[in-house]
Nucleic acid binder design. Structure first.
Lengths: 115, 115
DNA sequence: CGGTATCCTCGGGGATACTG
DNA sequence: CAGTATCCCCGAGGATACCG
């Protein structure tokens, strides 16, 4: 990795888990129980199949989620949290309890992202 | 924002806070107390001045840190956590306690992107 | 010391089309 | 249904140089 300078805090790992626009969202969804691919995609608004797939593959590679594929036609693939992924719930929970806007700062980071 | 679809969980905020290679690191550092610019930069390994500056500015704009500048020569600028930033400590703490490798998965994100 | 000002790279993320 | 396969865009992040 490019930044091997923090032996005191395991943020390198955190960065891998949290980096990416959809990873947290997926984990949040799966906290509520296993989900099939389409259900995930629909609940995650406008994520494309490609991106969702990649996201899920990475989460799986990181050992945070599992993937169960019934080899049928039509396919039926289910995703859920592993033990290790479920261990993240305190983090997600702390995040959820944190919240940003209790004081309205009325600034939204001023991103335009207009296309 | 491009994705306004999760009223149930405040992840949009989380994404803004956690997105970026250095934000978490900076917050971790400032948990231990206010720091001057150079101290931060040195403790954060190979971050460039530009990137650190941008990171700090954004964190400031998000109300997570404050910036105190003594208008002297040479300058002396100090950064620290605001109340709101300090409220993130539970999250950082939960993250810190989580850790990745307690079971050796012996895999370090080895996605080969085989084609 | 603590910044701006430029320029560039790289890859995450998206759009679209096709498939077992 | 749950994916691959391409192509493309843009912006975060980095290198370098200069400044009050």
């Amino acid at each position: 990795m490019t930044t091997p300078a923090y032996q005191d805090c395991p943020v390198e790992d955190a960065l891998r888990i949290l980096t990416g626009k959809w990873r947290l969202l997926v984990l949040f969804r799966l906290c509520k129980g296993p989900q099939r691919f389409n259900a995930l995609q629909r609940s995650l608004s406008p994520v494309t199949q490609k991106v969702l797939t990649i996201t899920l593959r990475k989460l799986e590679a990181d050992g945070l989620i599992w993937r169960k594929s019934a080899n049928t036609i039509p396919p039926e693939v289910t995703y859920g949290l592993t033990e290790h992924g479920a261990a993240l719930e305190p983090v997600l929970d702390a995040l959820g309890r944190w919240r940003m806007g209790e004081a309205d700062r009325s600034r939204k980071h001023t991103r335009k992202v207009q296309r």
